[in-house]
């Protein structure tokens, strides 16, 4: 069961960064970042299974695969933004984290423009 391994890594990382922070060394934050990376690397093979199932269902439902690609891209961008904003917030500068989150939103909007355009074209066809 991977969840036990992930929980163990999380707890060990928390204690290591606590001891480092007590010795007033700034490596406590770096240990937190390393722990986060390890946990996410463990999760990645689950993502692959999820996407395989979703893409087979989408093909059967007859939806174009380009929409699925951009949805997956948006999920990826959202996840990377949240991961890096969390790291930056751990080091303490909250305003920088908010800027990263805002940048993530803008990029997601840019990636989703084709879908919005396709929606409007569809509606335009219906009304004419």
């Amino acid at each position: 069961m991977d969840i036990l391994k992930i929980a163990a890594v999380g707890i060990i990382t928390a204690f290591c960064s606590l001891t480092l922070r007590e010795n007033k060394s700034e490596l406590g934050v770096v240990v937190g970042i390393a722990g986060g990376c390890i946990i996410v690397l463990m999760l990645l093979d689950y993502f692959a299974d999820i996407f395989a199932l979703i893409s087979t269902m989408i093909q059967r439902a007859g939806i174009q695969s380009s929409i699925l690609k951009s949805v997956i891209k948006i999920i990826g961008i959202g996840y990377i933004t949240e991961f890096s904003a969390g790291i930056v917030e751990d080091t303490g500068n909250k305003s920088l984290a908010e800027k990263i989150v805002m940048a993530g939103k803008v990029i997601i909007l840019v990636v989703s423009l084709p879908i919005i355009k396709a929606l409007f074209d569809l509606i335009a066809e219906l009304t004419i």
């Binding site: 163990a8 890594v9 290591c16 480092l20 406590g28 770096v30």
Partner: peptide, 12 residues
């Protein structure tokens, strides 16, 4: 976990 222990060791 060994990477975390390595970093913690270097830090201490």
């Amino acid at each position: 976990v060994e990477i975390i222990f390595k970093i913690a060791a270097v830090g201490i």
